[in-house]
Simulated scan of single mutants.
Amino acid sequence: MTDIQWQEELIRAIGSGELLQGTLSQLRRKDGELSPKTVVRPVQLKQGLHYQFEYHYATKVTHENLPPEQAGEKLVDLLSEHYKQALVKMPDADLQLLFNKKGKAAVLRKPPTAKADKAAAATHDRQKQRVIGAGQAAPFLIELGIMTADGAVHAKKQDKYRQINRFLETVNDVLPYLPKDKPLTIVDFGCGKSYLTFALYHLLAIEQKRDINVIGLDLKADVIDFCSRLADRLGYDRLTFQVGDIADYNAVTAADMVVTLHACDTATDAALAKAVGWGASVIMSVPCCQHEAFKQVRNDTLAPILSQGLLKERFAALATDAARGNMLEALGYKVQMLEFVDPEHTPKNLMIRAVRSEQKPSLQKWEQYVQFRDALGLTLSLEKMLSDFWPSEFKK
């Protein structure tokens, strides 16, 4: 394949949307200005199909989105002048390009490793997750040290950036369940440094212009002071932070959405009980450190699991969250268990997402919970905390 031929094929593939991914590596000259690796992939923006050039430097990753006609020229220029090799994935073939010292390309055509439908889905998911796209200089991300002033994500903050976007993706999915005819009240229990609290406010109040009031609660006064000062600098006048304990918090009598991320052990249960009591339309909880069930769980059939400390710990955590979800379902909530972030970033990656439905409390779900609870010998705090909400037929 001649230089003209591979260049024309790449430009055609980009123009038709058939280029699924390109990875460029090994610079011909280390001049410090170009990234050692560049990844090219299609993205769907409001303006239509674009190609995102992701530049990987030693200490940062930057992004550039180009329309197909510019992307084709950019890709050909990078390959012709700056890189020694590239792997380009298309629906019908993978192309491996290897450049000699004179810049002549040897092109190897291999069977495809990325199918068009899967790649399209991945592209859609990627855009959906990145509610705050790279290159969008969100003020709160700059203040929190995740982005530079020009919207580039700091290399060491890539995991946090992905976590924030994953969280906002899950929020976007449940927006239809929130009331539309009144201001929204949102409470974030155990907000900590409040990366996700600020992200939630940015999405709803800044981007979507929703009428909201967001309250962040945490036990650490110094953290709350930091968050309050940051909210003032950003001009987030409907975002407030308070010092307090979840179980004792009574500053509001109703809330539309309750968020609790990594509240330890039964603090998660206290937050779930508050949410149910306030009639929250949406509950989003990432539990942490479920010690209660670990101390109680017993079942002779499960001895191979329960006799091993590590396995018992993991089983107890899963059993606790399964019971929590079952109890919420018994009260009429629709519940999903989601992977919050990739397990490689944190093992505490399970999110309980519940939305209030019009369904009546379910005796079947309650009986299912009771059978599960008794089989494992559990006495769980959440059941007691929700005692005022159990219908009379549940107590027989």
Score class of each variant (00 low, 15 high):
243 V>I: 11
388 D>T: 14
383 E>I: 01
50 H>A: 10
192 G>Y: 05
291 H>Y: 14
264 C>N: 05
273 A>T: 04
179 P>S: 10
120 A>G: 14
364 Q>W: 07
316 A>Y: 06
197 T>S: 14
332 G>W: 03
73 E>S: 13
157 K>C: 08
278 W>V: 03
158 Q>K: 12
120 A>V: 00
55 Y>T: 00
18 E>Y: 10
33 E>R: 11
273 A>V: 06
183 P>K: 08
365 K>P: 01
249 Y>M: 03
324 R>M: 04
284 M>F: 15
22 G>K: 01
176 P>E: 06
385 M>V: 00
230 L>H: 01
342 D>V: 09
170 T>F: 15
221 A>V: 12
337 M>N: 02
29 R>I: 11
114 A>T: 00
70 Q>N: 14
243 V>K: 09
306 L>I: 06
157 K>D: 09
69 E>G: 00
90 M>D: 00
356 R>A: 14
276 V>Q: 08
225 D>L: 14
332 G>A: 06
330 A>H: 03
208 Q>I: 07
24 L>W: 08
239 L>K: 02
5 Q>H: 10
315 F>H: 10
37 K>Y: 00
308 Q>S: 07
218 D>L: 08
250 N>F: 06
266 T>C: 05
245 D>Y: 11
179 P>R: 10
116 A>R: 12
302 L>N: 07
160 K>E: 06
202 H>D: 09
178 L>N: 09
246 I>C: 09
12 R>D: 13
65 N>C: 10
127 Q>P: 00
71 A>K: 05
17 G>Y: 13
181 D>T: 10
31 D>T: 14
14 I>P: 03
16 S>C: 02
282 V>C: 02
57 Y>I: 08
231 A>G: 04
6 W>Y: 09
205 A>G: 11
301 T>G: 15
87 L>R: 13
380 L>P: 08
97 L>Y: 06
301 T>M: 12
214 V>F: 13
188 D>K: 08
86 A>G: 10
229 R>D: 13
77 D>P: 00
146 I>R: 02
57 Y>Q: 11
52 Q>D: 15
327 M>R: 10
265 D>T: 04
132 I>G: 02
220 K>Q: 14
245 D>N: 14
124 H>R: 15
6 W>D: 03
44 Q>V: 12
43 V>E: 09
23 T>S: 12
350 L>G: 02
136 Q>L: 08
285 S>T: 13
325 G>A: 06
150 D>V: 05
124 H>G: 00
74 K>C: 11
253 T>H: 14
41 R>W: 03
28 R>D: 01
303 A>S: 13
173 D>I: 13
87 L>N: 08
183 P>W: 08
28 R>K: 15
6 W>K: 09
193 K>H: 11
353 R>I: 06
160 K>G: 01
